[in-house]
Computed example of a mutant assay.
Amino acid sequence: MKYGYARTSTTEQNPEAQIAALESAGCDVIRTEQKSGTKLEGRTELQTLLDFMRPGDVLVCARIDRLARSIADLQTIVQTLKSKGVALQCTEQPVDTTTAAGKCFLDMLGVFAEFESNLRKDRQMAGIQNAKAKGVYKGRPRQIDREEIRAMKASGMSAIEISNRMGIARAHVYRCLKD
């Protein structure tokens, strides 16, 4: 049986092209989700497929970067599929884990997907540093009123009582008092 997996990172992106490609590839079941591909946690549709697939099944995705953005996660997924006797194929790339060339190409694409993700992070950090230097970016505004914490402490409340009342960690109370 062929199972299709389509993923977009955000709800603004549309998975229709991936779904059409998976349907053309003859997938019997197609699961979609809109989650980041940088980690496996929280990707319930993928996990459902990994749990459900049986020996002889095939997992089909449009491209490797739709499956994973890190080589470690890709290797975990591929190892899980291999241990279950499940093949992996891509509609837009010559990936087919039933062949030696397909396995080789899979490994190369995984490295490039992780490289692209790392470049994106570097560009984002450079942009943030540039914005900070210009005084445009100041980070997330504080949500805890430090003066209120100091007033509670001055009135004789313990750090535990303050943390319980404010709904914050006790360590955060100490950090606020230290500032």
Rank of each mutant, 00 (worst) to 15 (best):
R146H: 11
M157V: 01
M125D: 12
K103I: 07
G135V: 04
R150H: 03
Q124C: 11
N118A: 14
S117R: 15
A101T: 14
M108V: 14
R140L: 00
A126H: 10
V86D: 03
L88Y: 06
T97A: 02
A154L: 06
I160N: 13
Q129W: 12
C90T: 08
D122M: 10
R150I: 03
K153S: 05
I162P: 03
A159F: 07
I128F: 05
S117W: 15
C104G: 13
T98C: 02
A126G: 09
K134H: 14
A154P: 02
R150G: 03
M166T: 01
L106K: 08
V95S: 09
N130R: 14
C104H: 13
K103R: 13
D122V: 06
R165L: 04
I162H: 01
I160P: 05
V136S: 04
G110N: 08
G156Q: 05
F115Q: 09
F112D: 03
D96W: 02
Q143A: 14
P94N: 04
Y174F: 12
I149T: 01
I162R: 01
G139R: 03
Q143H: 13
V111D: 09
L119E: 15
M108C: 10
Q143C: 12
Y174T: 10
R165I: 05
G156V: 08
A100F: 07
K138S: 06
D145E: 00
S163A: 12
P141M: 09
A133V: 07
G102R: 06
R123C: 01
L88A: 00
A113V: 10
N130F: 10
K134M: 09
A154T: 02
I160V: 15
A131G: 01
E114S: 06
E161A: 14
S158N: 06
A87W: 08
V136K: 12
C104F: 15
S155K: 07
R170G: 07
Q124T: 15
Q93D: 00
T98N: 00
D122P: 04
M157K: 05
G127C: 00
H172Y: 08
Y137L: 02
K138E: 09
E148F: 07
M125P: 05
S158H: 06
R142N: 09
H172M: 12
H172P: 04
L109Q: 15
V136I: 14
N118P: 09
H172D: 06
A87F: 04
N118W: 11
I149S: 00
G127M: 01
G102E: 04
K132H: 10
T98F: 02
L106M: 13
N118V: 14
R120A: 12
T91F: 04
R165A: 14
T98A: 06
A101M: 13
R123P: 07
L106I: 03
T97L: 04
Y174C: 04
M125A: 13
A133M: 12
N130C: 10
N130K: 14
Q124K: 11
Y137W: 12
F115G: 12
R146C: 07
I128E: 05
G156Y: 02
D122L: 10
R175P: 03
